[in-house]
């Protein structure tokens, strides 16, 4: 039986990710865990995230999640970062009066402007709901998902990646921003695949079948 570790660092609701994984592939063993040995022993690793970034990053550092992520990325195992689990891997976030992040990927996490408008309509913040994702590269995780499919987002800060070669998907909400990032065996998304119905469940299925190679 293949195994997937969902890293638990004491924040937010990790069970919806676990439940969605079990739903798409009942014969996968999902381990919601903070134990480095179990994470190291799993075939695939997911870093989820809901909540404020300062507390999330502080918890990750206190628990050694930065090392677990580094080890996973070096091992070649498939890795998936979701929402704050994606933002935390960038260098710096404007949230909580400025938060130093783990710095795995070059780029910043920026705040949506207060008074954005588009086509005469005011854009509310958080960016909450179903938006279109344009796939900027071919990737095993996009397989079977139509370009510009809608995924569920809920966030007030967005990733501006510095290396265009790492961008895998983009979205527009007042600004264009980078909602998916791909680097070797790592894939990160701003939206919540576990809450994005058919398209999201397809992405999770793809992740569970991915060998980590491009």
């Amino acid at each position: 039986m293949s195994t997937v570790a969902v890293i638990d660092y004491g924040m937010g609701n990790l069970h919806s990710v676990a439940k969605a994984l079990e739903h798409v592939q009942p014969n996968v063993e999902v381990r919601v865990t903070s134990d480095p040995a179990i994470i190291a022993d799993s075939d695939r690793v997911i870093l989820p995230g809901v909540g404020a970034i300062r507390d999330c990053v502080a918890q990750m550092l206190a628990q050694g999640v930065d090392q677990e992520v580094a080890d996973t990325l070096a091992s070649g195992k498939p890795f998936l970062g979701i929402c704050v689990g994606y933002q935390a891997l960038m260098q710096f976030s404007e949230e909580n009066q400025g938060t130093q992040c783990l710095g795995v990927y070059p780029g910043q996490v920026k705040q949506f402007a207060d008074a954005m408008t588009e086509d005469g309509e005011r854009l509310k913040v958080p960016h909450m709901g179903w938006n279109k994702v344009s796939q900027t590269i071919d990737h095993p995780l996009w397989q079977g998902i139509a370009d510009n499919s809608r995924f569920y987002f809920v966030h007030s800060y967005y990733v501006a990646a510095e290396n265009p070669a790492q961008v895998a998907g983009r979205c527009r909400y007042g600004v264009d921003f980078d909602v998916a990032l791909s680097e070797k065996n790592s894939f990160c998304v701003q939206f919540h695949p576990e809450k994005s119905h058919t398209a999201g469940l397809q992405l999770l299925t793809n992740f569970l079948h991915w060998d980590g190679k491009l």
């Binding site: 588009e118 309509e121 854009l123 960016h127 709901g129 179903w130 938006n131 527009r172």
Partner: peptide
């Protein structure tokens, strides 16, 4: 704009 209005 691309954000869909939601039905709940």
């Amino acid at each position: 704009m691309a954000l869909a209005k939601r039905i709940i």
